[in-house]
């Protein structure tokens, strides 16, 4: 999933200060799962903002909504009845949702309430870690199911570097060395021979090397 973290309160206050009426929009997908921008976080942020402006004695109205999926035009359409009653939208979805709102409502300011982080997985309760950077040409079959592009600090396709220490990355002892993980799994799979196949220089075009990407499925496209 896509992970995110809410921006600091003072940033959000600065964002909404120029406006009197705000539509605060959460999303029921990834940001709900990582507790950054679901229904619950929308309610919390809404009261925090109201409290702040009440203390300041500034008139402030906020309407809360949480869409099924903010990156999907079908659901963004649900905002239509409310959009004219607000001065700006504060979105708690990932950057994709924020941009869907910007695309649909051309004359309404939209502000991001979260920092979109990465595509990752939950390692344990409350901990998420990066797993994939969407390189567009998945090579996990060649690296024992562990991605060196997303998980090696130097994205080495032929690691490990000389700084790998006791399973940890030289950059930070809290990061597992991706190449230690790959090696351990190759061993467990009885495939250590595979390690010596040199992976060639990557073609980055399927990543972002050929500009912003798009998928067109002729069978589905309308």
């Amino acid at each position: 999933m896509i992970t995110a973290e809410r921006k600091p309160m003072e940033d959000l206050i600065k964002f909404v200060s120029p406006y009197r009426r705000i539509l605060l929009v959460g999303c029921n997908e990834c940001v709900t799962v990582c507790s950054a921008g679901g229904r619950k976080e929308v309610a919390l942020l809404s009261s925090a903002l109201q409290m702040h402006f009440m203390k300041e004695g500034k008139p402030f109205e906020i309407k809360e909504m949480t869409l099924e999926r903010q990156c999907d035009p079908e659901y963004v359409e649900e905002l239509v009845p409310y959009i004219d009653q607000v001065d700006a939208v504060l979105s708690m979805s990932c950057g994709c949702g924020v941009q869907e709102i910007a695309r649909r409502f051309k004359e309404k300011p939209v502000l991001p309430a979260v920092n979109t982080k990465f595509m990752g997985a939950s390692e344990r309760q409350g901990v998420w870690a990066e797993r994939c950077v969407g390189c567009g040409d998945c090579g996990l079959a060649r690296t024992a199911g562990i991605c060196p592009i997303a998980r090696c600090s130097k994205q080495l396709l032929n690691g490990p570097c000389g700084g790998s220490t006791r399973g940890k990355c030289e950059v930070d002892p809290d990061i597992d060395c991706a190449w230690q993980l790959i090696w351990d799994r190759l061993k467990a799979l009885g495939m250590t021979d595979k390690y010596e196949e040199n992976l060639p220089a990557k073609d980055w075009r399927p990543a972002r090397g050929a500009g912003p990407r798009k998928i067109v499925r002729e069978d589905l496209a309308s």
Binding site: K154, L156, L157, G159, V171, N198, L199, A201
Partner: peptide, 24 residues
């Protein structure tokens, strides 16, 4: 060489390129 990570240097905010690795 692949080089030390920018994290250790005097421009820790720099993007590391790593288009290819040392073997490539």
């Amino acid at each position: 060489l692949s080089g030390d990570h920018p994290h250790f240097g005097d421009h820790p905010g720099a993007a590391a390129v790593h288009d290819i690795d040392s073997i490539q």
